[in-house]
């Protein structure tokens, strides 16, 4: 046998075919219905915001990696995903330069300063959104009605009595680009769950707690699920792997904590929605949750034979 140039490496010698890139792209695919709905309801504004936000995210990621002289990894899809997610949670009328700043902030401050992919404690898209909300409060709360771009109030401001549930479900209401259509979000969520990318504990934890809190405080639970960012947040934002707990118990608590904080803010707080801050707050306690919910190791705490 001539020299076969065999590869010698430690076991295991087999690898699953799923990759981090594929995970990122399956989240992007799951967002297609939402992107479609945003275009349907808000027209070219959707295209403008999504393209600008994604392009900025990728360029910012590239710039940071170039300056830090580390391998360029924009191909992993994570920056693109952050860009798209940010665009989908801003108002359709947001000026172009604002979304560009927001997206650059999301990648630069939300992700790269912590060391890039996998190292950021907070969901970068939500860091971008929070930054925009804090800096440009007026533009970030100017909502336009679907189809005709007339300034109007969101269902959360109008209240349950003056909103139509079918409109909320299909998305024909004022709101952030990608957050109005519950149907589109659900389709994406089911796809992600089926792909093994979405952890149901987080999503169910958020939604279940919102429903229970609504019932306890005598409000309409369906309205609270469908209005504002709850569904989008529970499906696409809270489930971000990097910033949510790694233990099953931790994920339940994480989801329930988000649901609880959303409802506290909605009922007693000064913001009408509160999803962004609820998720960012729970991102902050994720390391603690991981520590508190460490699973019992096989064989530990077991007594030696009877």
């Amino acid at each position: 046998m001539e020299d076969m140039n065999l590869i010698v490496a430690p076991s295991p010698h087999l690898r699953d075919s799923d990759t981090t890139e594929k995970i990122m792209f399956s989240v992007l695919i799951s967002l297609l219905p939402v992107i479609g709905a945003s275009f349907y309801f808000f027209g070219w504004d959707a295209v403008r915001l999504i393209l600008l936000s994604s392009a900025t995210a990728i360029i910012t990621e590239y710039a940071f990696q170039y300056i830090r002289k580390i391998p360029i990894q924009i191909g992993d899809g994570s920056a693109l995903l952050t860009g798209v997610l940010l665009a989908l949670c801003v108002p359709p009328s947001l000026p172009s330069w604002m979304v560009i700043i927001g997206s650059a902030f999301a990648i630069g401050i939300g992700k790269q300063v912590f060391g890039g992919l996998g190292h950021n404690p907070f969901n970068p898209a939500l860091v971008g959104r929070a930054f925009l909300t804090a800096s440009f409060a007026a533009a970030m709360t100017t909502w336009t009605a679907p189809f005709d771009a007339v300034t109007t109030a969101t269902p959360l401001v109008l209240g349950a009595a003056r909103s139509s549930l079918p409109d909320l479900f299909f998305g024909s209401v004022a709101g952030s680009l990608g957050e109005t259509s519950a149907l589109a979000i659900l389709i994406g969520g089911i796809y992600l769950f089926y792909k093994g990318v979405l952890d149901h504990r987080i999503t169910v934890g958020v939604l279940g707690t919102v429903v229970i809190m609504a019932l306890l405080t005598g409000q309409d639970p369906i309205f609270h699920l469908l209005a504002g960012s709850v569904l989008f947040g529970a499906v696409f934002m809270a489930t971000d792997m990097v910033t949510s707990p790694i233990t099953k118990g931790g994920r339940w608590i994480f989801g329930m904590g988000i649901g609880l904080i959303i409802m506290l803010i909605r009922i007693w707080g000064s913001y009408p929605d509160g999803v962004t801050f609820a998720i960012l707050l729970m991102n902050a306690v994720t390391p603690l949750l991981n520590r508190w919910t460490r699973p019992r190791i096989y064989g530990q705490g077991v007594k030696v034979s009877e």
């Binding site: 590869i7 990759t19 190292h119």
Partner: peptide, 11 residues
């Protein structure tokens, strides 16, 4: 040998 990326905490 596959290309190694950072841990994304997918658990």
């Amino acid at each position: 040998t596959p290309n190694v990326l950072p841990c994304i905490k997918c658990a």
